[in-house]
């Protein structure tokens, strides 16, 4: 069976095609960005509406399949921005109705975990999921994926974006901060906020801005923010591993593209005698393949949805999904 998956919870419109054997045949995307100013959900949704038809055609082309070969359509049902989710759902429903194939709505966070398991072979990992809006430590327990730790204020990626804007760097901020951090030398004083398995970042942002105002080298600020923020999330993940007795760490989310974060997570795993897992770069940020694969897992374990069940869910919680396929 071939499954097409549509991702569209935030900036990214992504389309992936996977086979029931777990081969990824296509994984294309288009990312909404702004030169100035912040993220406008309605503009992002308009971007997705514009891009999806072309992306779907492109995915079919790359995979060498024709529409008639598709047996299932999956889409990101939530959590995310309402306008983006609704646009994506309309595109998915259109495919389902036009091709007369079944449709399933997928939880975006669960999809990150499942594509990570597929690509890395991790079996029962603690997932450190770090992106613009999300910062969560997720693991499987008692039939569901549960959030064991998360940010108490802003997402780690949002924090990096805001810092980048403060420094006059563009969006997304993460890659530019990483470049700049390479030339940092001095570790500046910042708040380190880990409470149990939860973290908080707004204090770091405030302190980093204050350092900049006082004339600190931006390179040192970028370096210090990375050292603090990444150590915090790695420690939160480490605590979850100790608490749950799990021996694999899996990275997910766009911020996990950062080499320093990867290095820290790898060292932490080595020191605990655990294993480190990080999928290829294309599967870290939001992508369509993760939705397609999770949709397949759900469908093959008996999950069925009518069109009426495909209403989007902006606040779709990870632990609301009954994991029927494990």
């Amino acid at each position: 069976m071939y499954v097409i998956g549509l991702e569209g919870t935030a900036h990214t419109a992504g389309v992936g095609i996977v086979s029931s054997e777990g081969d990824v045949l296509a994984n294309v995307k288009s990312v909404y960005t702004t030169e100035v100013g912040g993220f406008r959900p309605r503009d992002a949704a308009a971007h997705h509406a514009r891009e999806f038809p072309g992306l779907i055609r492109q995915a079919l082309e790359v995979s060498g399949l024709s529409p008639g070969d598709l047996g299932l359509v999956a889409f990101s049902q939530g959590p995310g921005m309402g306008p983006c989710l609704r646009t994506t759902a309309v595109a998915a429903r259109t495919i389902a109705l036009a091709l007369r194939i079944p449709i399933v709505g997928v939880n975006h966070c669960v999809a990150h975990l499942e594509i990570g398991r597929l690509r890395t072979g991790a079996e029962d990992p603690v997932m450190l999921y770090v992106s613009g809006g999300n910062t969560q430590v997720i693991a499987y327990a008692a039939g569901r994926y549960r959030v064991f730790g998360e940010t108490l204020d802003i997402g780690i990626g949002n924090m990096l974006d805001k810092l980048a804007r403060e420094m006059g760097l563009g969006f997304p901020g993460g890659p530019r901060i990483m470049e700049m951090a390479r030339r940092g030398e001095r570790l500046l004083d910042l708040p380190y906020s880990v409470k149990g398995m939860d973290v908080a970042f707004s204090g770091i942002l405030t302190a980093a801005k204050a350092h900049l105002r006082r004339g600190a080298r931006p390179e040192d600020v970028a370096f210090s923010v990375q050292e603090y923020a990444f150590a915090m999330v790695v420690e939160a993940a480490e605590r979850a591993m100790a608490h749950l007795g799990k021996e694999e760490i899996l990275l997910a989310g766009g911020v996990a593209l950062n080499e320093r974060l990867q290095e820290m997570a790898r060292i932490m795993a080595e020191e605990r005698g655990a294993s480190y897992h990080c999928p290829e770069p294309e599967f870290l940020p939001d992508n369509g393949a993760m939705i397609a694969w999770t949709g397949y897992l759900m469908y093959s374990s008996g999950v069925r949805m009518r069109i009426e069940d495909t209403v989007v869910r902006q606040n779709f919680r990870t632990d609301e999904v009954e994991v029927t396929w494990r």
């Binding site: 570790l187 380190y192 603090y228 790695v234 997570a265 932490m268």
Partner: peptide, 13 residues
């Protein structure tokens, strides 16, 4: 000690 953390930060913590 946690060697994934910057040594100064680790010591401070």
């Amino acid at each position: 000690p946690r060697s994934y953390r910057h040594p100064e930060l680790d010591k401070r913590l």
